[in-house]
Amino acid sequence: MFDIDLGQTLLKFAQDTGFSVITWQQAVMLLVSCVLIYLAVVKQYEPLLLLPIAFGMLLVNLPMGGLMAEPTYYVAEDGTTQVQQVGGLLYYLYQGVKLGVYPPLIFLGIGAMTDFGPLIANPKSLLLGAAAQLGIFVAFIGALLLGFDVNVAASIGIIGGADGPTAIYVTSRLAPDYLGPIAVAAYSYMALVPIIQPPIMKALTTKKERNVIMEQLRPVSQTEKIIFPIAVTIIVALLLPSAAPLIGMLMLGNLMRESKVVDRISKTAQNELINIVTIFLGVTVGATANAERFLQADTLLIIALGLIAFAFGTAGGVLFGKIMYKVTGGKVNPLIGSAGVSAVPMAARVSQVVGQKENPKNFLLMHAMGPNVAGVIGSAVAAGVFLSMFAK
């Protein structure tokens, strides 16, 4: 009744599955993605971004899925260009990364969630945020010495700021082929802040310095909080126009928060908008980590340089904190300098935890938030410097 060759049918089915064409490189990447999912779910290392990044990595390394496939075109008889085959889902979502749309929107949400009061109350903490950018330039120079192209070196350097969106923004503009390994390195080190920073902080400070109890910060008026984002936007954008998208969106979000007149859109930026963009950004960035691009010697060097950058960033902030300790006659606890990297608010919490282990009566969180939010501004400024120098 039915003329079917069962053997040929089963053979064709087997040939149409991904199992028939999967490479060992793809298998390795699937394993790596599963490890990252484990770290996000079980260890809760920066799960909001690590989980979608890991799953995007998993999706793109499944053979024959075509989720990042580019569309194909043909020229019709009337001379018009027609779509022959549409691209994959993640290819279209990735355009928000490629065109530099997602990172500024992330900054909009971060600005809406951030209180710049501790920085305004203690402007000197801006210097700690600047000092913590040391890692960016150390990694940049190190990457150049290792033979990386200057654009790639600049992208690697930004990892030292511990600011994932900024690293993605710079890399998408300067070295898009390296987006996968740089993004994974940046977010991995952000997630490992509580593990990486404490040994460096303790090694560079004395017990006496770690025991310093800082004076309570002065109250900051709403007028100051409204003027601050406007002034920062004008000054930074005039000095570094290429930093305007990041700084502008960061400060717009903060102005919406502090003005108290647009609570509805401020809450949207803090919640729905940043959550949606985080999903798109994470999955599509992970999808750039395909086996052919990721499993190279360059990737291991990038991960190593990222760790060096992060370590030097932490050290730079702490060492400048020691200088401020000396200059102020022992009124500044150098531990808050480690919060100058822009992993908000995790780095500030680490300063608090390390300080309280030395002295349970020590409360450094609000003092550490000053250099912490200064680090966000500092990494965006560093990004602007690199873009103005190297972007075509």
Rank of each mutant, 00 (worst) to 15 (best):
Asp3Gly: 00
Gln8Ala: 14
Thr9Lys: 03
Asp16Ile: 07
Thr17Asp: 06
Phe19Lys: 05
Val21Pro: 02
Ala27His: 10
Ala27Tyr: 12
Met29Gly: 09
Leu31His: 09
Val41Ala: 00
Lys43Cys: 13
Pro47Met: 06
Pro47Tyr: 03
Pro52Val: 06
Gly56Val: 13
Leu59Tyr: 10
Met64Leu: 13
Met68Leu: 00
Pro71Val: 10
Thr72Glu: 08
Glu77Ala: 07
Val86Thr: 10
Leu89Pro: 08
Tyr91Gly: 01
Tyr92Trp: 15
Leu93Ser: 04
Val97Arg: 08
Lys98Ser: 13
Leu99Ala: 12
Gly100Gln: 12
Pro103Thr: 04
Pro104Asn: 08
Ile106Phe: 10
Phe107Gln: 05
Gly111Ile: 07
Met113Phe: 03
Met113His: 01
Phe116Arg: 01
Pro118Ser: 02
Asn122Tyr: 15
Leu127Gly: 15
Gly129Thr: 01
Ala130Met: 07
Ala132Gln: 08
Gln133Gly: 10
Phe137Ile: 13
Val138Gln: 04
Ile141His: 10
Leu145Cys: 00
Asn151Thr: 14
Gly160Lys: 07
Gly160Cys: 06
Asp163Met: 07
Gly164Pro: 00
Thr166Val: 04
Ala167Thr: 15
Ala167Gly: 15
Pro176Tyr: 12
Pro181Trp: 03
Ala183Trp: 10
Ser188Asn: 01
Met190Ala: 02
Ala191Phe: 02
Val193Gly: 01
Ile195Gly: 11
Gln197Asp: 13
Lys202Arg: 15
Lys207Gln: 14
Asn211Thr: 12
Val212Ala: 15
Glu215His: 06
Glu215Ile: 02
Pro219Tyr: 09
Ser221Glu: 05
Ser221Lys: 03
Gln222Arg: 07
Phe228His: 04
Phe228Ser: 05
Thr233Cys: 10
Ile234Gly: 03
Val236Pro: 13
Val236Asp: 04
Pro241Glu: 07
Pro241His: 04
Ala244Asn: 02
Leu246Gln: 07
Leu246Ser: 12
Gly248Val: 09
Gly248Lys: 10
Leu252Trp: 05
Gly253Val: 00
Arg257Asp: 08
Val262His: 00
Ile265Leu: 15
Ala269Arg: 14
Gln270Trp: 01
Asn271Val: 01
Asn271Phe: 03
Leu273Ile: 15
Leu273Ser: 14
Asn275Arg: 07
Val277Arg: 08
Gly282Tyr: 03
Thr284Val: 00
Gly286Cys: 13
Ala287His: 13
Ala289Gly: 15
Arg293Glu: 06
Leu295Thr: 06
Ala297Val: 04
Ala304His: 04
Ala309Asp: 03
Thr314Ser: 05
Ala315Cys: 11
Gly316Trp: 11
Gly316Ser: 09
Phe320Ile: 13
Ile323Thr: 13
Met324Trp: 00
Lys326Thr: 04
Gly330Glu: 14
Lys331Tyr: 11
Asn333Cys: 12
Pro334Tyr: 09
Pro334Cys: 05
Ile336Asn: 10
Gly340His: 04
Val341Leu: 15
Val341Ser: 11
Val344Lys: 00
Arg349Pro: 02
Arg349Cys: 03
Gln352Glu: 00
Gln356Ala: 00
Lys357Gly: 14
Glu358Ala: 14
Asn362Pro: 08
Asn362Phe: 01
Met366Tyr: 07
Val373Arg: 06
Ala380Met: 14
Ala380Lys: 00
Val381Cys: 07
Gly384Lys: 09
Ser388Gln: 06
Phe390His: 05
Ala391Gly: 06
Ala391Glu: 14
